[in-house]
């Protein structure tokens, strides 16, 4: 039994019971449907802004990008403007690919050592693929949910929903994004348990968001296909929240509140956790700076004068030896 993930699993199960019993037995719909979601949103916004401001307050004293391609030097040598960007458009392109397609992770390899010794590097795409599947499907699910918060529903959300339900399996139709999200989260969990090195470095806080997001996707699918909750009621509650006229419609059931509670917990947890990598990736000085430090001087706001050993002090110590060796000196 692995203590690290058991702790997080138990925490998520307790959260489930808390919301389910709270609504079904104690009738705390207002708490779980209105108060907690509002509180979570406030914590999320203030927390994230605080965190980003905290990073931004620390200056970037030196320009230290990781140069992953040929520098711009002589005109006849082709430089890599993407991996060693000399100009801002190059940096934007580098960041674009990094943020949207996880380009650095795409480079991933697996190292093995065999008899000889011989070290092999093989392509290892699974983490990159799972990460892409996870983030993109999660984004699709979130955007799709905007239909509950808008009236009338903008055409592009309807369009996305249509594309997502492309396979038209079952009634109501299955959304691809939900299944992909569930599968990707499950894979990310499995690799944390199975790959020995990844397991060794994993903390409880690496499992907690996985279980939580799994819970969110699972309760979502449960509501749509099995518990078949009243969608009109759900939309009423959601619209109430965004228009600041919160209401609690009748008969949307405990699972719905669990779903909302899980999302609230995720939002409130976000600013205090590693999930802040979402903001941090934009702030990483090894990626988001131009690599033109020899052409354009970078300013360090706290650059301060330091104690140095001057030439005069040097000559003072070695003058006689220098003269004897025929080296020029300032003072004979």
């Amino acid at each position: 039994m692995n203590v690290k993930y058991m702790f997080s699993l138990v925490a998520v199960i307790l959260l489930f019971l808390l919301a389910y019993i709270g609504v079904e037995a104690a009738g705390l719909q207002v708490l779980f449907g209105i108060v907690i979601p509002y509180a979570a949103i406030i914590i999320f916004i203030i927390g994230v802004v605080n965190r980003v401001i905290g990073w931004a307050r620390s200056p970037v004293p030196f320009r230290i990008p990781s140069t992953c391609g040929q520098q711009r030097s002589l005109p006849w040598i082709k430089s890599s403007e993407l991996d060693n960007p000399f100009t801002t458009p190059g940096v934007v392109a580098r960041m674009f690919l990094e943020v949207l397609f996880f380009r650095s992770l795409f480079r991933n390899t697996k190292t093995t050592i065999a008899e000889g010794p011989k070290i092999y590097f093989s392509i290892e795409m699974w983490l990159w693929l799972a990460a892409l599947a996870f983030h993109w499907s999660f984004l699709t699910v979130i955007v799709r949910h905007l239909r509950l918060f808008t009236e009338p529903v903008p055409f592009w959300i309807a369009l996305l929903e249509k594309a997502d339900g492309f396979f038209q399996v079952g009634v109501p139709g299955i959304f691809l994004s939900g299944l992909v999200l569930l599968a990707a989260v499950f894979y990310l969990f499995l690799r944390r348990v199975i790959i020995p090195q990844v397991n060794y470095v994993s903390l409880s806080q690496d499992f907690f968001p996985l279980f939580l997001i799994f819970g969110i996707a699972f309760t979502g699918i449960l509501m749509r296909h099995f518990a078949k909750i009243d969608v009109t009621g759900a939309k009423q509650l959601a619209m109430g929240l965004v228009t600041f006229h919160p209401t609690i419609p009748q008969g949307i059931g405990g699972i719905f509140y669990v779903h909302v509670f899980f999302v609230s917990v995720l939002l409130a947890y976000f600013p205090f956790s590693k999930l802040m990598h979402m903001g941090g990736i934009f702030m990483s000085p090894t990626r988001n700076l131009t690599c033109n430090t020899r052409a354009v001087r970078h300013i360090n706001p706290w650059n301060y004068p330091v104690e140095t050993h001057t030439y005069d002090e040097y000559e003072e110590e070695f003058r006689e030896k220098m003269i004897e060796a025929g080296l020029p000196v300032e003072k004979e």
Partner: peptide
Amino acid sequence: KVFMDICVRCGA
């Protein structure tokens, strides 16, 4: 500061 905060321990 950023490097202290954002590692997800993906193991890459």
